[in-house]
């Protein structure tokens, strides 16, 4: 029974990984840029949720929305101020730009919010539930389900709406899209906004059950790299499946080997994927 509980918990956290990773893979697939600061976006989402709750007494739904809006704007801002200027430049400039951003965001948060962990109150989403002998924490259940729904929503947005078609058109062929009257710059800014928003919502959801600190983005960012590589270049459904698998592996290795090593297994899987199937689960060859 405990094993079943470990599996369910892993899948729920995996759904949250899938959510923020789908934002990373969207930008990667669209303009071949990797945002090294994506974990820091999630961290900022956690803090937005925390401050919206503490200062303005927002509920879970409204602070998740607030985190999405704030991080959407940050994503657009980062694109306009930085990425737009380096994306066609040398590889070094592309990688250094978001890597520098990672340092600035992580340590500015460290400096502004302090080294101490903060957290939202325990019972914020009600008590734990007992479903057929499996003990489920309510926040994790809500987070997992909401994250899955938002990730699917993002996939539908990209594949079933006019906006999504425009974004994918720019990803496919920038010049052809321009001839169709689509403004690539605007679509790319929106993609960065959506990417930020996915990190923001995911951060707000994680904040309901996980302590908040300035350095939490370090492992979350690396997990996002593993998920997008495993899922395949630019594939949102791939990121979704990979996120669930990574959550499961993490949960099982924490249970069998020890929580200190849970990330070790995930990073080792990353190297393994690169060796065995570098294009990932759903990537194009």
């Amino acid at each position: 029974m405990i094993l079943l509980q470990v599996i369910v918990a892993g899948l729920l956290i995996g759904a949250v990984y899938a959510l923020f990773s789908s934002g990373l893979t969207l930008v990667w697939g669209m303009m071949n840029v990797i945002n090294f600061a994506h974990g820091e976006f999630v961290m900022l989402g956690m803090y937005v949720a925390f401050w919206a709750f503490t200062l303005a007494h927002f509920g879970v739904a409204s602070f998740s929305a607030a985190a999405a809006v704030v991080l959407f704007m940050l994503g657009v801002l980062v694109y306009l101020a930085l990425i737009r200027h380096v994306m066609r430049g040398p590889m070094l400039a592309q990688i250094l730009s978001t890597f520098g951003l990672l340092l600035v965001l992580r340590y500015a948060a460290f400096w502004a919010f302090g080294a101490n962990f903060v957290s939202l109150p325990d019972g914020i989403l009600g008590p734990s539930l007992n479903v057929g002998g499996i003990l489920l924490s309510a926040p994790k259940l809500v987070a997992g389900v909401v994250a899955l729904a938002v990730t699917i929503g993002m996939h539908l947005l990209l594949t079933r709406t006019m906006l999504g078609s425009r974004i994918l058109a720019v990803a496919e062929d920038r010049n052809a899209a321009m001839l169709m009257g689509i403004r690539p710059d605007r679509m790319q800014a929106i993609a960065w906004g959506l990417s930020g928003a996915s990190a923001g919502i995911a951060g707000a959801l994680i904040a309901t059950f996980f302590p908040i600190s300035a350095t939490v983005g370090e492992s979350l960012g690396l997990i996002a790299f593993v998920v997008v590589t495993f899922g395949g270049f630019g594939s949102v459904p791939g990121a979704m499946i990979a996120g669930l698998i990574i959550g499961l592996i993490e949960s099982l290795s924490a249970y069998y080997v020890g929580p200190v090593y849970q990330d070790v297994f995930v990073y080792a899987l990353f190297v393994l994927v690169l060796w065995i199937r570098p294009r990932g689960l759903m990537g194009k060859a």
Partner: peptide, 18 residues
């Protein structure tokens, strides 16, 4: 603060003077 400074310098190099 040192890290913030480093990050800032890295961003500026990438953006203006790779």
């Amino acid at each position: 603060l040192t890290y913030i400074l480093y990050g800032g310098i890295i961003v500026l190099i990438a953006r203006f003077e790779p």
